[in-house]
Amino acid sequence: MNSDTINHMAAAIRAAILAHEADIESLDREIGDGDHYINMKRGCEAIATISAELAPLSAADALNKIGMKLLSTIGGASGPLFASFFMSMGKILKTTETATIQDIALAFESGVQAIMQRGKAQAGEKTMLDVLIPVADTFKQLAGQDKPAKEIATILKTVASEGLESTRNLLATKGRASGLGERAIGHLDAGAKSCEVMIHAVCDQILAKAH
């Protein structure tokens, strides 16, 4: 992984988020506070504006810079959570010269743990973590088994979609949806949808490269 790859993936994520505007906004209107998509879009645009600054940096420094940019750009709860994710990934990758797939899986896991700690949340609470935690666990397991990137990407897409679907019948205990009680049951979580979209975008880039 290098800064070129990070810029490439960021562009793919931005395109995917823009393409799923209607889906994400409708989910957020149902049980959220209505500003989730705006914040996601703002974050993607902010990263796009610093692509030239990221280019000469190491992967670790690029991820840290993305985290700092998101912290100063995105409002609400999303900014600090995503900032923690990228900065924690950067911290792990700082310790390695050439990141292996195992290093990236470890960095991803560290980023997800940072979200858990900052948000004081865990799986089963109808949040983005219902996608991120199973993806992180599966990624680490598959990387540890030396599975090829193409196979990992294919499996992670499925795990992300299953994680999103799992939020439908959960009772929300975090965020604005928690105030709705049982009325939130039957609806997918918007944050989980955004994470599924982003994971699919990255995995699709990996699959396209593998062909």
Rank of each mutant, 00 (worst) to 15 (best):
M1H: 08
N2R: 03
S3G: 01
H8Q: 13
H8R: 14
A11L: 12
A11H: 03
A12E: 09
I13L: 08
I13G: 10
I17Y: 02
L18I: 15
A19Q: 12
I24V: 06
I24W: 00
R29M: 11
E30C: 15
I31S: 10
I31N: 03
G32L: 08
G34D: 05
H36M: 10
H36R: 02
Y37Q: 12
Y37S: 00
N39S: 13
K41A: 15
I47D: 08
P56C: 04
L57Q: 09
D61S: 10
A62Q: 00
L63D: 03
N64W: 13
G67P: 01
M68I: 13
M68K: 09
K69C: 09
I74M: 12
G76E: 05
G76C: 11
A77I: 07
S78C: 12
S78W: 09
G79D: 05
G79W: 03
P80G: 01
L81P: 09
F82P: 11
M87V: 01
S88R: 14
L93V: 03
K94S: 15
A99V: 06
T100G: 06
T100H: 01
T100M: 06
I101A: 15
Q102D: 14
I104H: 05
I104S: 05
I104T: 06
I104Y: 10
A107I: 12
E109N: 11
E109G: 15
G111R: 01
V112T: 03
I115Y: 10
M116W: 08
A121I: 01
A123N: 09
A123I: 05
L129Q: 05
V131W: 01
I133S: 07
A136M: 11
A136D: 14
F139M: 07
K140M: 08
Q141C: 15
L142E: 08
A143D: 11
D146Y: 12
P148S: 09
P148C: 08
E151R: 03
A153F: 07
T154I: 07
L156G: 05
K157I: 04
V159C: 02
A160T: 04
S161F: 12
E162S: 14
E162W: 05
L164H: 00
E165A: 11
L170F: 02
L171W: 02
L171V: 11
A172D: 02
K174M: 09
A177C: 08
G181E: 04
E182N: 15
A184T: 05
A184W: 00
A190C: 09
G191R: 03
A192H: 05
E196N: 12
I199C: 07
H200D: 13
A201N: 01
V202D: 01
C203W: 04
D204Q: 07
A208L: 15
A208R: 13
